[in-house]
Simulated assay, not measured.
Amino acid sequence: MFRPMRRIKQLLSEEDTLAVMNRCTNGVLACLGDEDYPYAVPLSYVYFNEKIYFHSAKSGHKIDAIEKSPKVSFTVIDEDNIVSEEYTSYFRSVIAFGRARIAEDGEWFEAFKALVEKYSKDQPEENRIKEISGCNHSHIIAIDIDHITGKEAIEYVRAKNKK
């Protein structure tokens, strides 16, 4: 169903792919927007329980697009180092394909807690829980992942192989 990566030597292992998902703090959600134009929006996320979660207002372009067609892709760029003398960039990125949906009640709290942990771990737990409990005016969107791959520049692959 999903295309195999053409440059298979550059495929990240599952472990490295998930490390990128856990390390990065933002990505780009792509879905089918108004008039079937692609709609891509940057957002903060958490990879938790083998799903991608993000916070959203209860209405707007993103919610309308997900309700219209839940199939989405989500891209995270871990590195993008320009190497001008080689006319290239050394990169590492991940792309996931899946189906987006509004998280259910119990899942909502656990996912929101994971988001708050990721971005506000330095705040007292009591404050984090209070923030979550007071935020009933928003959705947590879950992406149930159907396919995920990571890829890195061939230069990074060669450097690893030299070790």
Score class of each variant (00 low, 15 high):
residue 1 M to L: 10
residue 3 R to M: 09
residue 5 M to S: 03
residue 6 R to V: 13
residue 9 K to W: 10
residue 12 L to C: 13
residue 13 S to I: 13
residue 13 S to T: 15
residue 14 E to P: 07
residue 14 E to T: 14
residue 14 E to H: 10
residue 15 E to T: 12
residue 15 E to L: 12
residue 16 D to F: 12
residue 16 D to N: 14
residue 16 D to E: 15
residue 18 L to W: 04
residue 20 V to M: 03
residue 23 R to G: 08
residue 23 R to I: 07
residue 25 T to L: 15
residue 25 T to Q: 11
residue 29 L to G: 04
residue 29 L to C: 07
residue 29 L to M: 08
residue 30 A to W: 01
residue 30 A to M: 01
residue 32 L to T: 14
residue 32 L to Y: 13
residue 33 G to H: 10
residue 33 G to V: 14
residue 37 Y to Q: 06
residue 37 Y to D: 03
residue 38 P to C: 02
residue 39 Y to H: 11
residue 40 A to Y: 02
residue 42 P to I: 07
residue 43 L to P: 00
residue 44 S to N: 15
residue 45 Y to K: 04
residue 46 V to Y: 00
residue 47 Y to S: 01
residue 50 E to G: 06
residue 51 K to E: 02
residue 52 I to R: 04
residue 52 I to A: 05
residue 52 I to D: 03
residue 55 H to K: 09
residue 60 G to H: 12
residue 61 H to Y: 06
residue 61 H to P: 00
residue 64 D to W: 05
residue 64 D to Y: 06
residue 65 A to W: 08
residue 67 E to Q: 15
residue 67 E to N: 15
residue 70 P to W: 03
residue 70 P to L: 01
residue 71 K to H: 08
residue 72 V to G: 01
residue 72 V to A: 03
residue 73 S to A: 07
residue 74 F to D: 05
residue 74 F to E: 02
residue 75 T to Y: 02
residue 76 V to P: 02
residue 77 I to A: 02
residue 78 D to F: 00
residue 79 E to P: 03
residue 81 N to M: 14
residue 84 S to Y: 15
residue 84 S to F: 13
residue 84 S to R: 13
residue 86 E to C: 09
residue 86 E to T: 08
residue 89 S to T: 11
residue 90 Y to M: 09
residue 90 Y to G: 07
residue 91 F to D: 02
residue 91 F to K: 03
residue 95 I to G: 02
residue 99 R to H: 06
residue 99 R to T: 05
residue 99 R to I: 01
residue 101 R to L: 01
residue 102 I to W: 13
residue 102 I to G: 10
residue 103 A to T: 04
residue 104 E to Y: 12
residue 104 E to N: 14
residue 106 G to A: 14
residue 107 E to V: 04
residue 107 E to K: 06
residue 108 W to N: 05
residue 110 E to W: 01
residue 110 E to Y: 00
residue 110 E to I: 01
residue 112 F to Y: 12
residue 112 F to N: 01
residue 116 V to D: 05
residue 116 V to G: 01
residue 116 V to S: 04
residue 120 S to A: 06
residue 121 K to C: 05
residue 121 K to Q: 12
residue 121 K to M: 07
residue 122 D to F: 12
residue 123 Q to F: 07
residue 125 E to T: 02
residue 126 E to R: 13
residue 127 N to I: 05
residue 129 I to T: 10
residue 129 I to A: 05
residue 130 K to P: 07
residue 131 E to F: 15
residue 132 I to L: 06
residue 133 S to C: 11
residue 133 S to G: 11
residue 134 G to C: 08
residue 135 C to W: 15
residue 138 S to G: 09
residue 139 H to Q: 11
residue 141 I to M: 08
residue 145 I to W: 11
residue 146 D to H: 10
residue 146 D to V: 01
residue 146 D to M: 06
residue 147 H to G: 05
residue 149 T to V: 14
residue 150 G to D: 04
residue 151 K to G: 03
residue 152 E to L: 05
residue 154 I to F: 11
residue 155 E to M: 11
residue 156 Y to V: 08
residue 157 V to R: 04
residue 157 V to Q: 02
residue 158 R to S: 07
residue 159 A to C: 08
residue 160 K to N: 15
residue 160 K to Q: 12
residue 162 K to S: 11
